[in-house]
Simulated scan of single mutants.
Amino acid sequence: MHAAHPPSFPLLSLQRFLAGQALAPDIDAQAALAASLVDAASCSVMLLDSPDDPGSSMRIHAHHGRLPDTALQAAIRRGEGISGQVLASGKAVLVTDIGRSEFAALARRGAGFGESLISAPIRVEGKVVGVINAANGAGSPPFDDTALALLETAALLIGQTLQLRQLRHLLGSGFARQAMLAETRNAAQDTRLAYRNPDEVARILARSFFRELSSAGFGSAQVVAAASELIGQLNRDLRAERQQED
């Protein structure tokens, strides 16, 4: 492993990350903070489509810096590529020179990038739900163990943020809270409101909405009418957003 200088004043960098994380409104901002923390040219946050499904794919949900189109569009399963191996093993990876490593055939590199990368698992309640990746810039020194430890810390804090954000949304809605609790009971899981991908939560709420309407005695026509109303509201929101953009 080549010697490399770590980001200047790691503890100060970590302090700035923590301060910025408290203000970051979204994961994109946190990806930028993580990139700054380890002095990376690019950083990406990948999350599973469905954390409870072993066959689920992982996609980029946020990133900072340029990334190859192949990386932005990729759907990675456990064991596929470097990120997929980190997802499957739950262990962080440090690569100082990708061209001379066992991962040489797996890397997706673009112009302007260096040869070093780090990748760490993102956990929620002990479960790996995604991966954070960072790549250095061309001509920059390779990452070292200090940078890897800092990225693992960022991954831990991002995982906590993912959970807290979702819990705030769910706890703010009595219907959503009851739907999630019912889902975990039906699945014979524990009844904590564990992190789930937003797409999966939406499907759970839709199933619960249908069950509630059915149990209340509404027929197919009324269920279709309710679904049509939801679609109508969505269309109105989309039109309003387009008008604001214009």
Rank of each mutant, 00 (worst) to 15 (best):
G81I: 05
L48W: 00
F9A: 15
P198W: 08
S50V: 01
Q73P: 00
P51Y: 03
L230C: 09
Q243A: 14
F113R: 15
Q243Y: 04
Q30C: 11
A202C: 04
N197C: 11
F103Y: 15
D49R: 09
S220K: 07
A3E: 09
L37E: 03
A62H: 01
R242Y: 03
I82P: 01
I82T: 03
R165K: 14
A149I: 00
Y195M: 08
L72N: 11
E183A: 11
E80G: 03
L148G: 04
G90L: 02
G139E: 11
F143E: 06
A35G: 08
D39S: 10
L151E: 05
L193E: 02
S228I: 01
A206P: 01
A4V: 01
Q163C: 11
R211W: 06
E212I: 02
I122E: 02
N235Y: 01
L37T: 04
Q30Y: 01
E183K: 04
A71T: 14
D53Q: 08
L205S: 03
Q73C: 00
R192P: 00
E115Q: 14
M1Y: 08
L213D: 09
G217D: 07
L156P: 00
R211G: 07
I82H: 07
Q21A: 15
S214H: 12
N235H: 10
N197Y: 02
A35K: 11
F175Q: 11
A3H: 08
D28N: 12
G174V: 08
A240P: 00
A104M: 06
P6R: 10
P54V: 01
C43F: 08
S215W: 05
Q189L: 11
A120G: 02
L213H: 12
V224W: 08
E229Q: 10
R203E: 06
L205V: 13
G84F: 06
L72Q: 15
A74P: 00
E115C: 03
L11C: 05
S56K: 01
G159W: 11
S208R: 14
L12K: 15
V45L: 15
L171C: 08
A135Y: 00
A227C: 09
T146L: 07
P10K: 14
R242A: 14
D190N: 13
R16V: 01
P25Y: 11
A226H: 12
G81W: 09
Q30M: 14
R109D: 04
A227D: 04
L87N: 07
S56P: 00
K127V: 07
A74D: 15
A35F: 03
A22R: 09
G55D: 15
V223T: 13
G172D: 12
